[in-house]
Structures are given as structure tokens and as C-alpha cells.
Design a protein around this nucleic acid. Structure first.
Lengths: 353, 353
DNA sequence: CGCATTGATGGGAGCGCTCCCATAGTTTTG
DNA sequence: CAAAACTATGGGAGCGCTCCCATCAATGCG
């Protein structure tokens, strides 16, 4: 046994060379088999595969990356100010989808939380130096420069959720507009007359879409004359406290309100609390609908009717889209528009409406 | 400009060689500066650092890994059957802690979800081949062979939560025993006479500790004579339905129960539902305390008194411990016991008790 | 004052792999 | 039947870095 010198850290299993020797072929041929090249005879392929199995060979990623110039890894980037993201199933489900889909290739998933400016800068450099092959970004704010930066350095990237109507970075989004519309139609269908909404921060495109869906549903029901935009719309911030505040404001401004569509479950929880404090029954006096179908929705009393997004599927779709981008990267260097995907949302009826 | 051939994917920034040339030094010296070796003169160091800044040099990880035999990456492994893990803050907070602490080194965080046998096997091989430098495992079951496997192949690993009293793999845990004891003391202090508990699955060590804490609190209060173990202890399974079932059983068996310590918030939610169905007020008729301080606890009605664990800190501690293990790996190859860390828990009083 | 010691430096070797070119063996074609 | 065209294969070059050894200069010591 060789004396353990400093740098030998890896008794890292057999090398390609050893596999090749064992199979009685050359290194190049062994490599071809490992990488599924068709230009290998059946016999040889079998021999190499046997050797791989016997030796328990696992390719050395670093060596492969170095030689091939690709890293076989994609980064999932999460802006960490998004604390709330974490508490909700959103992130976890995206993660599950991403991970599942990625498992079918053998790419690595690198998780990067952007805590502060420093980590941000570091990641930017890292990406610019092409130390990953692609980037997935979750919950990007409208003014985040990162997606465009990545674009400039030719790093394939997919974001979850558009940042604006004119989003030019490839994205996967859910149909916020239609989801909101469904929710409000549902409330109208239940005979509610004064349907209000607590929106998300209106500088976020998704929040805006939900508001548009709300308006559209009212318009379609012939209620646009009521000018709901004025009295019945309150801007929230996706937090529980925000929902509470918004609901209080709403009750004061329009005591006759009998239904509220909240742009997130968490805000609905806040609103529900405000209603309780005001002595209003749910759904008796006021019907409530949320958005997200997060855990909160199921645990509220009464359980919250809400709009579900196919989040896990969004994660999977993001990966598929990214892989697609990565494989074509060369010949679309100058393309000005990426692929887009919008997945459907669905109303989940519970007792709050 | 060289014609873009197939494999050149990386126009990956400047190399060490170029930095060295720019700074007018040799490659070795440049490397020394980058890696903070002390054996470099101040002048030279400054020159190299200037060159790095000007060129925007970012070391090529693959090359570094290949040459140094270490991968500069640790894997965070999550057994995916743990669906519930994801819905709770637990995982997210661990993740934040891990990520924060890791950001101070420049290791990469590799996230691995173990969906099925195939991914499990793949990861095992991967680790055995030392394709990561260390492994963090979250929520390991008592019968999971992975930790011991890693140990055998000399892969440093830290798990969150002991698997048994005699855990021999390095771990970071929270003080389940004391947390439970606090909770039950609190209930006793509030004048409750018939304090029951709904436990977790008793094949999980953490659940067992919480039960022990419960017993200890009763014993300390001089109530061991009541043989609480028989009538007032029901085994749950950490799910909401389980909590509901357990509470129903409890009510039937011991209608006079006036306090319940649930070994998880989610079970407390189930129990709360059962109590509502049975027409019991919380905390009027029955006081309720949970464990975890998850989002559910805050959203219950009334908000749930519960036991908080310093989860983010646990994540950070896991990383510190792992780095420590990694740095000593060589000289402790034969050590039979790893370091352990148990962090304190804390009672969060809310209206349910 | 000459030789040993220390500190800073340059650069060779090689990590394990992929790419690609040269080679040899085999088949098709004129 | 020879030349051309494939096919399967071996192995060199080199990816960008770290490790380490040889080198050279500047000290220290007897």
C-alpha cells in the first residue's frame, strides 16, 4: 500500500484505464462504450460493460468535466430574501420536480441560495465562467439583473414565472390569470354580490395577472359597471400580516363585502383572522378563496378553497426546457426569444366558499 | 479565433496560466496566491491578485478537483419518502443553515433526493467513488443502511437526529427529551391533572425521547403513581390523520383528559380537529401542546403552544461538524466514535394551553 | 569568510477523462 | 482484382489545476 501523501485523497475507485485493461480493450473504446457511442461492436460493448460491473466503475466527474469542457451540472438558484417561499410547498415541490426530471439524465443538481450581495456576485462570476451548464431560477423579481446577465454570457437559463408581459428569458409559468378568473367566477356562481380581492405586490407580474383575472371574471359577469377596481381591490404583500391589514381596510371601506379572493393562501389566513376579529363568519358572511393550495389552506378553519398550480410539473418542465436549451446552445446563440410554457391552474373547492 | 469545434463548450474565462503570465510570475506561484499559501512575498501576492481582478479569473473547479483529488462539494441527502418533511419548515431551515455555513467555505452544495431504489444505489456508488467530499443526511430512519455504508467507504458524514441511543455516526440533534419535559411541565404548571400524550412512531428514536421526556415530567411532579403510561399514552405516526385517530381513542379511553402533549404540530392539528368534533374547547376543556413550531402551529385556532428546535442552527452545526471531520479524515480513519452535538429546545407559549 | 539553512519561485508530472487522428481489418465498388 | 470507403480500435494530446522538487537568492552560523 502506498504511503498516504497529502494530495491522494481519492482512493477513488477504478479508472477508465483499468476498466479498459480488464476488458482487454483500449481506453478510447472503453470510453465509447461508457458514453454510448454506436461505433462499437456488440462483443466489445458487452466486455466493457462486464468490466464496469465487476470493478464497480464510476466515471470521475471532474476528469470528464475537465476534458469535455462541460460540467454536467445545473444550478438551482433561489433568491433568499424569499423567506416565505421556503415555508410553502412551492419550493419543495419545484425541487422535487427538478430533482426527479434531472435524475433521468445524470446531471448534478447544485443548490445555490443567494443570501446577500456577496453570494450573488460570486454566483454571477461562477456562471460567467461557465462552471455550470445551465441555471434554473425560482421566484425572480422583476428587477433582478441575473437572468439578463446569464443571457449575456451565454449561459442557458430558465426561470419560474415571468417577470413581465414581455418576458424574453425562457420561462415556465402557471396560468395565474385563468386561475384567478376561475376563483372569482366560482364566488360569483355561489351568489356573492360584493366580490373583493386582496392582491399581491403589484410590481410582481404574477400578482398583476391574478388581479387581471379577477377583473375579467367580474367583467364577464357583467359587473364592470360597479367599478370594482376602486373600492374592492386592496393591495397586499403576500404575507399574513399584509392579508390581515388588507382585510381590515376592506371591511372599513366596504362593510357589505361578502366574498374575497386572496392572491395567496397565506394572505387568506391573515384575512380570515381579521374576519374572525370582526365577528364575520366564513363562509356564512364572507366567502374566502386563496391561491397556491399550500398547507395553510388545508389547515385553516374552515379549510380554504384555493387555486392549485401544478408546481411539481413546473419543476420538471423547467428541467426539460433547460436541457433543450443546453443541447441547442451553439446554434441559437443569437436567438432573441426563448421557449415559453404556461401550465394550467385548477380550483380546489373547500368549505370556505 | 479558433473554429468552434464540438467539445470546446467552455470559452471558460482565463486560466491560471494566463493570470500568472499577466502578473509576471510562474504558474506555481499564482496557484499559491489563489490558495492562500503563506510562502509568497507580499509584492508577488499583490501582483497576482491584481491580475486575478483584471482578468476576472475564476478557478476551474473541475481541474482543481481532478488535480487535488478532492471535489470541493458536499451532498445533502434527503430520503424522499419523507414527503411530510418538505411541507414543514424543517427542511427549508436546515437547508438555509447548511447553505449559509457552506457559503463561508467555497464548497458546493449538491442536493440529492433519494426517490427510489435506483437513485439510492446510484448515490451509494457515487459516494463510494468519493465523488463528493462529505455527506449530510436529513431525517434518516433507524434502519437506513446508508450512514454505515458511508462510514465503511470512509466518506465523512453527519446526520440530523440520532437513529438510536447508541448512535455511532456523527450527528446533530435537538434535545427532544428536555423539550418534551418542558412542554409537559408547562401543562402541569397550568394546573392540568390528566396530561396525556400522543407520541410519534416509537421505532423512531426522536419520538421515543419525547415520550421519555413526558414520563420524566410526570415523575418529577410526583405523578408516576398514576401509571400514566397505560391509559394516557397513545402512539401516533406524525400525520394529521394519525393525530386525529389517537385523540379519538384517547377521548374514549379517558374522557377526563384535560391536556395533551402531541409529539408533532401536525398531529396536534389532527387532535384539535377530533376535539372540535367531540365538542371540547381548546384550551378551555383540553390544553394542547405540539412540537416543532411549524407553520401549522401558528395557523391553528387557537394558535398552538409548541416546542421549538433551533433548526437553522442545526444545519449550520452539521456543516461545521462535517468540515471538521473532513479535515481530519486521514488521521482518524479508525476512530469508532464521531462527535455529537445536541442543541437545546424551547417552549413557545401560545393560546392553546 | 565559506558552508548550511531558510524563503520564494518556476515549472514538470500527472490527475482521469474526451477528442480525434492514425491504423488495421473488412467490405463495397469500378 | 485493385482501389476506395467504411468500421472498429488504440492511444496521443491536452483540459487547468495541485503537488512537489529543483533552483536560486538571501540570510544565519561556526
Amino acid at each position: 500500500m502506498p504511503a498516504a501523501r497529502g494530495g491522494d485523497a481519492g482512493r477513488s475507485g477504478p479508472t477508465l484505464e483499468q476498466v479498459a485493461a480488464r476488458a482487454g480493450v483500449g481506453r478510447g473504446t472503453a470510453s465509447r462504450v461508457i458514453n454510448g457511442s454506436p461505433r462499437v461492436s456488440e462483443r466489445t460493448r458487452a466486455a466493457v460493460q462486464a468490466a464496469v460491473a465487476e470493478l464497480g466503475y464510476v466515471p470521475n466527474r471532474a476528469a470528464r468535466a475537465l476534458a469535455a469542457g462541460s460540467m454536467d451540472a445545473v444550478a438551482l438558484v433561489v433568491p433568499e430574501q424569499e423567506n416565505r417561499l421556503f415555508a410553502e410547498p412551492y419550493f419543495s415541490e419545484i425541487l422535487r420536480g427538478v430533482s426527479t426530471q434531472l435524475a433521468e439524465t445524470d446531471m448534478q443538481l447544485l443548490l445555490t441560495l443567494l443570501h446577500d450581495e456577496r453570494s450573488r456576485e460570486r454566483f454571477t462570476q461562477y456562471a460567467a465562467a461557465h462552471r455550470v451548464d445551465g441555471v434554473l431560477m425560482v421566484s425572480v423579481h422583476g428587477d433582478d439583473p441575473l437572468p439578463d446577465l446569464l443571457r449575456e454570457v451565454g449561459m442557458p437559463a430558465v426561470i419560474s414565472g415571468r417577470r413581465s408581459h414581455a418576458e424574453h428569458v425562457p420561462y415556465v409559468d402557471s396560468d395565474n390569470f385563468l386561475g384567478a378568473q376561475l376563483a372569482v367566477e366560482h364566488l360569483i356562481g355561489r351568489g356573492r354580490r360584493q366580490v373583493a380581492t386582496i392582491t399581491g405586490p403589484l410590481d410582481m407580474y404574477g400578482a398583476r395577472c391574478r388581479l387581471d383575472g379577477y377583473h375579467e371574471a367580474l367583467r364577464a359577469a357583467g359587473r364592470q359597471g360597479a367599478r370594482p377596481g376602486e373600492r374592492l381591490v386592496v393591495e397586499g404583500d403576500f404575507t399574513e400580516e399584509g392579508g390581515h391589514r388588507a382585510m381590515c381596510a376592506l371591511l372599513e371601506r366596504e362593510p357589505g363585502v361578502d366574498a374575497v379572493f386572496c392572491a395567496s393562501d397565506v394572505m387568506a389566513a391573515g384575512a380570515r383572522l381579521a374576519l374572525r376579529e370582526a365577528g364575520r363568519e366564513v363562509p356564512g358572511d364572507v366567502a374566502l378563496v386563496g391561491f397556491d393550495d399550500s398547507a395553510v389552506a388545508r389547515h385553516m378553519d374552515p379549510p380554504l378553497t384555493t387555486v392549485r398550480q401544478p408546481i411539481e410539473e413546473m419543476g420538471r418542465a423547467m428541467v426539460r426546457m433547460l436541457l433543450e436549451l443546453m443541447s441547442h446552445e451553439r446554434d441559437r446563440a443569437g436567438a432573441e426569444q426563448g421557449p415559453y410554457l404556461v401550465l394550467p391552474t385548477e380550483l380546489v373547492r373547500r368549505r370556505s366558499s
